[in-house]
């Protein structure tokens, strides 16, 4: 009991301290410095309408590269830790009629919607990560509905690796062509899609990278789901 009281007091003091700190950063004020530059130049420098996507992929592309690595580590780590010689799905109860037929109907459309999200990353909110997550939910639905369904584990790992390499290759091509790593050569050098900003075929290499990220996140999250759902079968 005493421990909880102590915890509450400590946390209140820390909370007060944080609040005092945050008071110096008043909510809702315009303190933009670098952000203003992004907003002013995003259209002509990257061709994307969605500034957040431009920042994520182009201006601060290095973060996203790290970001993709973090997710890759998560899936590899989960794979490494839950690795067993022989693993099977031990789910017993088949999904109810509503779930199975629903999944059979909806799964392809969910995947299509996921693809839509990451292809239109540079125009509409959301990008590679939400798109990939939606695709993963489709696979999760399949796992929940059918007790025997398993994603093709080996191929997913290969796809994951290949797509990851594709991402770095895009960066390296940028290094080769433009002399800078992760340089957007499609927009800066080829000038492809300069005229139709705001429509699908624009935004330099943002859609390319977002498709890569979408596929990667999709395969990785479903790989994690697959690892976690399987049990060790000892015979």
């Amino acid at each position: 009991m005493l421990k909880r009281a102590l915890a509450i007091i400590t946390l209140l003091i820390i909370g007060y301290w944080l609040a005092q700190g945050l008071a110096g950063v008043p909510f809702g004020e315009d303190r933009m410095l670098v952000a203003q530059y992004y907003l002013d130049h995003v259209k002509e420098q990257t061709g994307a309408v969605n500034t957040v996507t431009a920042v994520v992929v182009n201006y601060r592309g290095f973060d996203t590269l790290g970001e993709v690595t973090v997710l890759f580590i998560a899936s590899t780590g989960v794979g490494a830790l839950l690795w067993r010689k022989k693993r099977e799905r031990t789910a017993k109860t088949e999904g109810s009629i509503v779930l199975t037929t629903g999944t059979r109907l909806l799964a392809p459309f969910i995947m299509l919607f996921g693809a839509y999200i990451f292809i239109h990353g540079h125009l509409t909110p959301g990008g590679g990560f939400p798109g990939g997550a939606t695709i993963a939910t489709a696979f999760l639905l399949l796992y929940m509905a059918f007790t025997v369904y398993e994603i093709p584990h080996k191929t997913f790992e290969k796809v994951e690796g290949a797509v990851g390499m594709a991402y770095v290759l895009v960066g390296l091509i940028g290094l080769a062509i433009g002399g800078y790593f992760l340089y957007d050569w499609i927009w800066q050098d080829w000038g492809f899609g300069v005229d139709n900003v705001g429509r699908l075929l624009s935004g330099g290499f943002i859609p390319v990278i977002y498709t890569i990220i979408g596929l990667k996140v999709g395969t990785e999250l479903s790989g994690i789901i697959d690892n976690m759902l399987k049990e060790e079968v000892s015979e």
């Binding site: 952000a35 500034t51 920042v55 994520v56 996203t64 973090v70 580590i73 990008g127 990560f129």
Partner: peptide, 16 residues
């Protein structure tokens, strides 16, 4: 836009 970009990364780190 920058904090939103950062949050995108932070969420995925949280998931990982």
């Amino acid at each position: 836009p920058i904090p939103q970009a950062l949050v995108l990364t932070a969420i995925v780190i949280g998931v990982a």
